[in-house]
Design a protein around this nucleic acid. Structure first.
Lengths: 161, 161
DNA sequence: CTAACTGCAAATTCTTTGCATACTC
DNA sequence: GAGTATGCAAAGAATTTGCAGTTAG
C-alpha cells in the first residue's frame, strides 16, 4: 500500500534531518537516527509506544523520553506527520517524505486505516484560505465508517449506535 | 457566528435526550440535563474541564466524572460532536442539533476556531465510500494555518517552522 | 425498594520534565 | 572540556474506574 523509499531516498531523509539538527544547534545522536529509521521502516500509522517497543527489540536500548523527544523534532522538520484519528488514543505518526498527499479512512469497528487522495480537498483549502484571509499550512481529513472486510471485527448487532 | 436554538428547539433537544435515555434504560437525572444545557448555552468549542467549571458556578455542584460520563452519552445519541483539533490537548465538544454541517479552520497562533462549509466534502465522502466499499458515518476536516487578525497572538518571527 | 447514578479520590493512559550520567561537538 | 542528550523515574494532564452513599423509576 505504501511505497518504501529507495536507499538513496532514505539517505536523503537522513541528510535532511542532519541538516535540520545542525541548523538548530542540536546534536546528531545515534538514538535520533534510530527513531527516524524505525519510523520509516513501518508501513502503518504507529504510535510512540509501539515505536518504543520495536526499538527495544533492536540492539540498542532506548527510553520512551527519547522516542517522544525525537518524534517532536521529526515533526518540527516535516519528516513525520502526526494524527489523532479521533479515537482519543495515542497520537499516531507516519513518514512524510516524498509520500503522496493523502487523507485517511478509518474503520470504526476494526480501526484499520486506509489512505485516499482527492484533488478537491486542495481546492477547498484554497477557497477557504481566500474567503477567511488565512494562510493555510496543513489539513487533516478523516472519514469514519464501517469497512466491509470479512476479517473486520464486527460491530455489535444494532445496539447503541 | 453560531445561531442559538429557539426555546422550542431546546425543548426538542431535551426530548431527544430523554427518549434516548429511556430507550437505553438509563435514568433521567438533573445533572445530565444540566450538562446538556450548559453545552448548548455556549458558542465555542469547549472542553470537559471548562464545562465543569461553568457548571460549578451554577447552583448545583457537579463532579468531573459526571460531566465526562454525560458528554459520552450525548455523543452516543448524536446531540454533541467531539473534536481533537490536533493540538494534543483536551477533546472539545460542540452541540450538533440542527446546526449546519460544517468543518473547522484553526489558527496555529491564537487557536481561534472558525467554521466553514463546502459541499465538495460530501462528494468526496460519497466517492471514497464507493471506491473502498465503506459505509461512512462521519468525517472531520480541519484546516490549520495563520489567521491575519490584528489581535492574533503573533507567530515567532520566522524561527523554527 | 433496588439498581443505577453521583461525587470523590484513586487508577490509567499518554506525554513531558528533572536530574545524574554519558557523549557530541 | 562544556554543555546538550540520554535514561530513568517521577510529575502532569486528560479521562476512566471503584466504591459508598444517594436517588430515580
Amino acid at each position: 500500500m505504501r511505497k518504501r523509499l529507495s536507499p538513496d531516498q532514505r539517505q536523503e531523509v537522513h541528510d535532511l534531518f542532519r541538516r535540520y539538527l545542525h541548523r538548530q544547534g542540536f546534536r546528531q545522536t545515534p538514538e535520533r537516527f534510530e527513531v527516524l529509521d524505525a519510523l520509516y521502516d513501518t508501513d502503518e500509522h504507529i504510535d510512540a509506544d509501539e515505536l518504543y517497543y520495536r526499538l527495544r527489540t533492536r540492539k540498542r536500548s532506548i527510553s520512551r523520553a527519547t522516542v517522544y523527544n525525537t518524534l517532536n523534532l521529526l515533526e518540527a522538520c516535516d519528516l513525520v506527520i502526526s494524527h489523532q484519528f479521533g479515537d482519543k488514543g495515542a497520537t499516531r505518526y507516519e513518514p512524510s517524505f516524498r509520500y503522496w498527499q493523502h487523507d485517511h479512512l478509518i474503520c470504526l469497528d476494526c480501526s484499520k486505516v486506509l489512505e485516499f487522495c482527492d484533488p478537491r480537498i486542495q481546492r477547498i483549502q484554497d477557497l477557504v484560505a481566500e474567503i477567511y484571509n488565512f494562510e493555510i499550512k496543513s489539513h487533516d481529513l478523516n472519514l469514519y465508517g464501517h469497512c466491509r472486510r470479512d476479517d473486520c471485527t464486527h460491530r455489535q448487532s444494532g445496539l447503541a449506535r
